[in-house]
Design a protein around this nucleic acid. Structure first.
Lengths: 217, 217, 217, 217
DNA sequence: CATGAATGAGAGTTCATTCAT
DNA sequence: TATGAATGAACTCTCATTCAT
């Protein structure tokens, strides 16, 4: 399962010459940004850094993005777009709680392993206070929560606080992925089994739960 | 259990006037820094921002800290120092796996609730790529791992990969805490029960585990 | 013989509008720098002082030079470039020791008189310990030494330590020039005759000299 | 002939305890300043640098000197005071032009050799525009001029422009000293002979000269 | 007198952004 | 549309100097 986080430098097809160059430049900037973000972290990266990693002129940047933040959001979106279908499909097809959880972890660890630098960028990216966490965007917190609720409806899970479970899964996924990357010989498969067993086993013992009337925002 | 993350403005005793003022100024800077970090995030915060939140002159900052990074490290240390004993004590006295895990979550959620701003600062703080995560420092990843290993020795837990479990616990703690803070009426106690049940229940079903030969730097 | 040390504000020809402005700005900065260096001395001058003497914005300076040192080096180079050919030509055409020495002094005093401020800047410029003296660069210590050796080969001078003679000539030139500038009615021509007679007369009585085995690095 | 440029850390005698400490602190500052000036050059040296090279507190500096400039002047004065008597004595006792000139060069080169660092400091010290050159102060331009005039009166020298000759001697002394210091095996004695022969030989051929009516300031 | 923390002006430099070409 | 020089606000940090202790 070698899921590229993002296909970079995709050759644009079926566009006029002009539009093609435009698309290419956008790509060039995004690729450079992803690279630099992963090297320096979001906070340390400046628009200048991104431009410098490019053969474009500084002014050109502003034809495509208004700011560093905007590039970053575009990157997140890209990543989420690449990630989401794989994750959702695995979970929708799941016939058991275990399959559901395992699909999530396996996809995530595989991606993290295949894209260490980019994963690091995401993981070490500072969040604007008050805004949704990058990791939550990337793994798709909201989709995960919905999928969990659908799974409850399908009888895969008992009634439980979908939001908290989603949070727990994402937390486990990220922290274990990080721990894994520090190891000399990371075993994504074993980690995946560990995380899956932990969550699935835990779910069985959760206290009973009604509709989370108090979940806001 | 209302554990303040940090006791600020500690009154200095038994010091000369001079030393006392020095101590006070240090406190003033640290407090301002914590506040600003939590408002703007680490990356967006400048030394000037911190100074401005103070009645001190710009040069004075550098009598106390060499850089933004150094203040930040001092803050982390303070937080860890305040946190660590409470966490360790609860875990050392634990007579069951449940008590062990519950001690960790309860302390953490209580603190997070009592110090929303500061918790946000920690949680939204960008990590220098390649350096230990702030959250891991604050909750004490290393101590948690050791405590888990001691708990295994004491028979509270089966043999398992202490590092991964520590990672999982920290991940669950942080993400659930964050989810909690978005709620209108966060119920730290319920969240604590949820997280504890999840982890404790999961542990029971974990695949058997030998010595983690592959855990390296 | 009114040799300007440097021709400033050279009109650029055959360049696009953009390149022309760039060239102009470079000139503006160099001119301002020369002026300020001569007023305040190198050590007291700050980059900001230079910018302030200009209608440019502070950041613009850094589009042209990385530091004060770099502007200074550019100035020295300019000066040396303007100076060197005049000096060398006079010496190469010299048919006697006297003509050789006189060419050096006359050129130097004429320039010093014509460019009092700039000469002062050079003369009052602090040398980075361990690096070649500004005055030596400007008058071209190395070229002078080579020319002396060639003159020895041509039989104009007896065998002598070219390095020491070059040093002596430069020392006499600068100190006399400085003394001259303090006078109400400096007579460059008389000073030139004085210096020339001193050196030329002295050379005749120098102790015999073999190959300078001890001139190193 | 091992003439120390300055006797540092001289133990004060015959002073009260209080005055002694005062004198000591002054010494400490002067010594540190001389050291730092010679390492960094005058322009790069800050008062802070000098204080740091000392065990004194920053405020203490200002009990002794008003500024970097003032310390520097004190250093020059010290140096001149140490130098002057040796130079004057040698010249007053001189029975020939050669002895006169040789006394100056020999003393100077010996000192320069014995105090390379300090000599470098003097030589590389930027002059405040419009003020007398450090080197001129140290070797005693004014005394040299007077001594030359007295020597003319005594019949050692023909009538000549004493000011220009003084300038020439100082120029030759400094530049040759500097050239010498770059050599692997500097031979001060040979350099002294070279310089002496050059000047003495030159003097004999100087154009006749009346009283320099135009020497001003 | 010695001390050393506080001060705030100011230096060097970088940055995001604009805009004439 | 791409370019890249100009801009000047803003940042980090150092410095000379003061002054309460």
């Amino acid at each position: 399962m070698n899921v590229p986080l993002i296909r970079t430098s995709a050759s644009a097809v079926g566009l006029g010459r002009r539009a093609q160059t435009k698309e290419q430049n956008r790509r060039v900037i995004l690729d450079a940004a992803r690279q630099i973000f992963s090297e320096l972290g979001y906070g340390q990266t400046t628009v200048r850094d991104i431009i410098r990693a490019t053969s474009l002129a500084s002014g050109t940047f502003y034809n495509y993005f208004k700011s560093k933040e905007e590039v970053f959001e575009a990157l997140c979106e890209e990543t989420a777009l690449a990630f989401a279908p794989v994750l959702r499909e695995g979970r929708e097809e799941a016939a058991s709680a275990e399959a559901f959880v395992a699909a999530t972890f396996r996809t995530f660890f595989a991606c993290a392993a295949a894209n260490r630098a980019e994963f690091a960028a995401i993981n070490h990216t500072e969040v604007q206070p008050g805004r949704p966490n990058t990791r939550e965007i990337v793994v798709g917190f909201e989709e995960l929560r919905q999928d969990i609720e659908m799974a409850i409806a399908r009888g895969l899970f008992p009634a439980l606080d979908a939001e908290l479970l989603a949070a727990a899964i994402i937390g486990v996924a990220y922290e274990i992925a990080e721990a894994l990357q520090k190891r000399a010989t990371p075993d994504a498969e074993a980690a995946s089994r560990f995380a899956t067993a932990l969550i699935v086993g835990g779910i069985a013992t959760l206290p009973k739960y009604g509709t989370p009337a108090n979940s806001a925002l």
